[in-house]
């Protein structure tokens, strides 16, 4: 067990290193050099040259990557904060500390000041949505899987597949038309600021609803499929013919086995909810992580893109790790081999 977790943790570190190198390299080689992207379109050639020198952009990419890691870990001073450059970048934490993600050229603040705030907003959105999606899809998936082909099962299947097929931008616009324009119950944007008319809670309703509608059907279908399969297994027959009450057959014998397959899918939803909800955030003007990443990429804010991508990768590997450990817990055939 310990060996397994140690191995996995090793893999997590390796994945982070490899992916950070890839992300770094891709960004460095994107059109236009780093100096001109940092300075923006109105900088003079002279300024660009100074920055180019300062950042030692002629060095090989591997060396620059090591330097970037150096800044991140606080071994090296962040060159962008040097007052000589006249960029006016100033981080209250200083220019050399552990976890220095650099300076965002888009928002003109240290990356640490913008990224965690945005991530927090998205985490709140994801957590609420997940807290609704998970029990809802489990209950409906299990109920319909228990009685394959029944009225309930068919209704749920059709509803699920219909909802999943409606893209977020469509359902977002439709919901807005109903609840904002027609009924006037909810706000059309969710900037998460105290607006005179709408509370923060009310601003969460529509984005959460869009995510739930989009994701619920998919997860429910996964759970249903697995449940249907488990219910045909001989050990379920054994449990029934042992004289166990039906409730116990389901709760003790079917559920745990039925959870093994959809477990990974469910964890992938966390991933999706945190880093993949760009569309929903854009529709509702939600100040989230996905929208920030999109804006940073469009603007060419390399530092922020790099930092945000690393956070996204980290979330992905962590859910994967949690998934592997949980899978092992659920499935004794993997736990004891």
């Amino acid at each position: 067990m310990t060996v397994f977790i140690l191995k996995r943790l090793g893999l997590v570190v390796l994945t982070m290193v490899v992916s950070s190198f890839l992300v770094f390299t891709l960004n460095e080689f994107s059109p236009g050099n780093v100096a001109s992207k940092t300075l923006g379109p109105y900088a003079s050639q002279e300024q660009k040259n100074i920055l180019f020198e300062r950042l030692q952009l002629n060095d090989p990419v591997l060396l620059r990557y090591v330097r970037w890691i150096g800044v991140l870990t606080g071994v090296i001073v962040d060159p962008l904060q040097d007052p000589v450059l006249g960029l006016n970048f100033h981080d209250p934490r200083g220019d050399q500390y552990f976890g220095n993600l650099g300076y965002s050229t888009l928002y003109k603040v240290p990356v640490n000041d913008v990224i965690w705030n945005r991530l927090g907003n998205t985490l709140a959105l994801a957590a609420i949505a997940f807290a609704i999606i998970l029990p809802l899809s489990m209950v409906f998936g299990i109920l319909s899987g228990m009685s394959e082909g029944s009225m309930l099962d068919r209704t749920l299947s059709y509803t699920g597949i219909t909802l999943t097929s409606i893209p977020e931008f469509a359902s977002g616009v439709m919901l807005m038309a109903i609840f904002v324009l027609w009924l006037e119950w909810l706000p059309g944007t969710s900037p998460l600021m105290s607006l005179p008319e709408w509370s923060i809670a009310e601003q969460f309703v529509l984005p959460v609803l869009v995510l739930v509608l989009y994701d619920f059907g998919y997860v429910a279908r996964m759970v249903r499929g697995s449940m249907v399969e488990v219910m045909t297994r001989p050990y379920i027959r054994t449990a029934i013919l042992k004289g166990l009450p039906y409730r116990r057959v389901i709760m003790k014998h079917a559920l745990r086995n039925a959870m093994i397959a959809p477990f990974t899918v469910i964890l992938l939803q966390i991933n999706f909810l945190i880093t993949g909800v760009v569309v929903t955030e854009v529709i509702f003007g939600f100040p989230g992580f996905g929208r920030m990443l999109l804006e940073a990429a469009l603007f060419g804010d390399i530092t922020l893109v790099e930092a945000a991508t690393m956070v996204a990768v980290f979330i992905a590997v962590t859910t994967q790790l949690v998934g592997d450990i949980g899978y092992m817990y659920l499935n004794p055939r993997i736990r004891f081999t």
């Binding site: 001989p234 027959r237 086995n257 055939r333």
Partner: peptide, 17 residues
């Protein structure tokens, strides 16, 4: 009335001791 089945492995629940 109790039953014993042909394939003991599949007749037992794999995730319960």
């Amino acid at each position: 009335i109790a039953m014993v089945y042909q394939e003991p492995y599949s007749a037992l629940n794999p995730s319960m001791n």
